[in-house]
Design a binder for these strands. Structure first.
Length: 408
DNA sequence: ATACGCGCAAAAACCACAAGAGTTT
DNA sequence: GAAAACTCTTGTGGTTTTTGCGCGT
């Protein structure tokens, strides 16, 4: 996928590709200061931009975590990485799976990175919380919370988080047979609705669409539980949005008045549930009593998701704002250590991606292996074959009377 | 430097039907 | 509320086809 990777440029053991700080010329740069047009390491950035009020106002952005040579332009939520435009294009144009990754434009780092937390409000009511002590920081760093953040801030954080989760575009459990039995049609529907005129409210989904489902970091799950502290049961059984989610309700209704909020919720949980299996087919309602904390969300290869998840081509950069309705999830402000950890985790995750096929039903597998084929394709059973099969089944039944259980 | 063809590898598509899941009675 | 009957959807594997990439000319 990445030519740079193939060339070995991202060898974890070496940092030869990383740009060095324009100030000290020794450390690896971590931020790019637009005002100074300079790449700076954490230390120099702290020193320079803490020197004066004016300097502290310089807009800076993180350096791309992939190439480490250009200012990050987008935050990929699926990869949990800040990427420059070039790397973003490379990585996310590589395949349909990558194209589905949900990216948001990188916002400039406000104030000083290492000072007290600063809360910034942007249009649409989304919050950005700058600065962190590292304590209570989100593992993946999308949301940085300090321990001493007040309840209001946390609530707003929850709201953003909830919106991010809940506004996913649910793959429509379409009862229309014509659509379901035709993958191509489904794909067309999914892609086409991006700019299709008639599906007006769907575009909102696209903004927050299922890229989050690929967050198979354990952190993500833990985070959800930790923040909401709502028993899973309450989500699942009656589809009643927890009291705590009153804000969520308003958010959902804001975007999709005709959609049931429980639908979003079930979808969300369904995604997680399916992640532990194949990622295929999202349950229309989650009747399974699944405990999120017990789910191994990292088991299923991402590739499995590629088949049914809603997908959309990456919108033009200029359209991002148009199509990403509020709330926009703002990249957090991280300490250099957090950032380094993120980079390592990002690379590790890329390295460890699994694409093995997961068998959910051994019985189906066994049956498929015994079925007649024509050029590899399943073929209709002839009457004779059916008869033989019947006899075989009968034989098995007879055998079972002797205690031999057919095992699939 | 660019265009083209070739070989290889990986991914996608195709098929039928039992099993599973959901809905209705 | 539980059970049965019914309908609809999903998952399964071997082969072929398609797609993408690297390489040489």
């Amino acid at each position: 996928m990445l030519k740079k990777e193939k060339s070995g440029g991202f060898d974890e053991s070496s940092n030869n590709w990383a740009r060095v700080c324009d100030s000290c010329h020794s450390a690896t740069c971590t931020v790019y200061c637009r005002a100074d047009s300079a790449y700076l390491c954490a230390g120099c950035d702290s020193r320079i931009h803490a020197a004066s009020l004016m300097a502290s106002r310089h807009e800076r952005v993180w350096v791309c975590e992939a190439c480490e040579r250009a200012p990050a332009a987008f935050l990929c939520k699926a990869d949990a990485a800040s990427l420059c435009a070039s790397c973003d294009a490379d990585i996310h144009s590589a395949n349909p799976l990558a194209r589905r990754h949900h990216r948001v434009p990188i916002m400039p780092i406000p104030g000083t990175l290492y000072g007290p937390p600063a809360v910034h409000t942007i249009s649409g009511g989304s919050m950005m919380i700058g600065g962190t002590t590292g304590e209570g920081t989100e593992d993946d760093g999308f949301l940085s919370l300090t321990q001493d953040a007040d309840d209001t801030t946390i609530d707003e954080e929850d709201e953003n988080e909830a919106a991010s989760w809940l506004l996913l575009n649910p793959p429509v459990k379409n009862n229309n047979k014509n659509n379901i039995n035709n993958n191509n049609n489904n794909q067309n529907n999914n892609y086409g609705m991006l700019f299709g005129g008639e599906v007006v409210d769907d575009y909102l989904d696209l903004a927050e669409y299922g890229g989050d489902s690929q967050f198979n970091d354990q952190y993500r799950v833990n985070h959800q539980q930790q923040h909401y502290s709502v028993p899973q049961k309450s989500y699942v059984e009656d589809s009643v949005v927890p009291v705590q989610n009153g804000q969520r309700k308003s958010l959902i209704l804001y975007h999709q008045p005709q959609q049931q909020q429980s639908h979003h919720l079930n979808f969300q949980l369904g995604m997680e549930y399916d992640n532990s299996n194949t990622g295929y087919g999202y349950p229309a309602s989650l009747s399974h009593s699944v405990s999120i904390s017990s789910m191994d969300v990292s088991v299923v290869p991402e590739s499995a998701l590629s088949e049914t998840s809603n997908s959309h081509p990456r919108p033009q950069k200029g359209t991002i704002d148009l199509f990403s309705g509020p709330p926009i999830q703002i990249p957090p402000q991280l300490t250099p250590m957090d950032r380094e950890a993120r980079v390592l985790r990002y690379r590790e995750k890329k390295k460890n991606r699994k694409f093995e096929k997961t068998i959910r039903y051994a019985s189906r597998k066994a049956y498929a292996e015994t079925r007649p084929r024509i050029k590899g394709r399943f073929a209709k059973r002839t009457d004779v074959e059916a008869e033989v099969d019947q006899m075989f089944s009968t034989q098995l039944m007879t055998d079972s009377s002797y205690g031999i259980v057919p095992s699939f």
